[in-house]
């Protein structure tokens, strides 16, 4: 089932001359885990905002083409309606925190209150989101007394508690330590396997290669490629788009190793191990 259909999307912010998104078209199926990559200013965050309606409803500007989410035309649907379908985890958790709640527990309730979820239903949803992100012990803490990494976990949990069909995450693990980052990726993968559609902007290419079903490569507002991680990261023109392939792919490239069946570079630790351990010059 097509969960998201984008056709010929063009967008320009107010008071700017260049298109932030230029003729972008793609389709995403329910339950897919999509990674979005590209250099800074490629249009990644703008595309995230366009999926949940902040573009164009909040930012205004010039808009062309269409974005359809679960059958709803985004440009013709109010954000409050879209918020029931699409959840956005902000790049900077400080920007996302409501500022009107005194505890982490209440901060997670904020979105649910706005959706009109009954109190009895709120509590189990908040508790399970806190458990999924490993922040149960911070329930009574003030959100602004959390460290950057803890606040980032809270920001993700706040959106997961709202149980959106589609979750859009903009660099959700930038402030987490390596194991914390891995835990968050696994938690999000579990949601994806339960049918939640996941769209994630990320600079950690090794993680994108390992967890995404498909990878979207953006540059200068255009969609350059949208394919499996193996195909996208085996392109020989990645440098031109300011991207370095995952370390494991670069090692295999350096040794001239390709996966025999596909002719593409191995992307993950496990795949690279299989090829490198048997490699002879």
């Amino acid at each position: 089932m097509k969960k998201i259909v984008v056709e010929g999307l063009k967008y320009r912010y107010p008071l700017t001359a260049e298109l932030a998104l230029n003729d972008v078209s793609f389709e995403i199926e329910k339950g897919e885990f999509i990674g979005i990559i590209g250099r800074n200013l490629a249009g990644k965050s703008t595309l995230c905002q366009a999926l949940m309606g902040l573009v164009p409803h909040f930012y205004k500007g010039a808009y062309g083409g269409s974005v359809t989410v679960d059958g709803l035309n985004v440009a013709q649907t109010e954000i409050c309606e879209l918020a029931r379908k699409v959840g956005l985890v902000f790049q900077n958790p400080f920007t996302q925190v409501s500022g009107s709640k005194m505890t982490v527990y209440e901060e997670l309730a904020f979105g649910l209150e706005n959706l009109g979820v009954p109190r009895a239903e709120m509590m189990p949803r908040i508790e399970s989101a806190m458990a999924l992100l490993g922040i149960e012990r911070f329930g009574k803490r003030n959100p602004f007394d959390l460290s950057g990494g803890q606040m980032q976990r809270m920001a993700i949990a706040s959106v997961i508690a709202m149980a959106p069909d589609i979750i859009v995450l903009d660099e959700p693990t930038s402030q987490l330590d390596p194991q914390g980052s891995e835990e968050v990726f696994q938690a999000i993968q579990a949601l994806s396997r339960q049918g939640m559609t996941v769209i994630m902007v990320e600079h950690k290419m090794e993680k994108i290669a390992r967890y995404s079903d498909r990878v979207m490569l953006l540059d200068h507002g255009r969609l350059v490629d949208f394919d499996t991680p193996e195909r996208v990261f085996s392109r020989d023109d990645l440098a031109q788009y300011g991207i370095a392939a995952p370390i494991f792919a670069r090692i295999c490239q350096g040794l001239g190793i390709r996966t025999p069946q596909t002719g593409l570079y191995p992307m993950t630790l496990d795949d690279a191990y299989d090829q490198v351990v048997n490699w002879h010059e």
């Binding site: 330590d177 390596p178 194991q179 914390g180 891995e182 090794e206 370390i247 494991f248 630790l269 490198v276």
Partner: peptide, 11 residues
């Protein structure tokens, strides 16, 4: 310590 070696070192 909840860390991991660099990707190159892991491989």
């Amino acid at each position: 310590a909840h860390l991991e070696p660099p990707h190159v070192t892991q491989l």
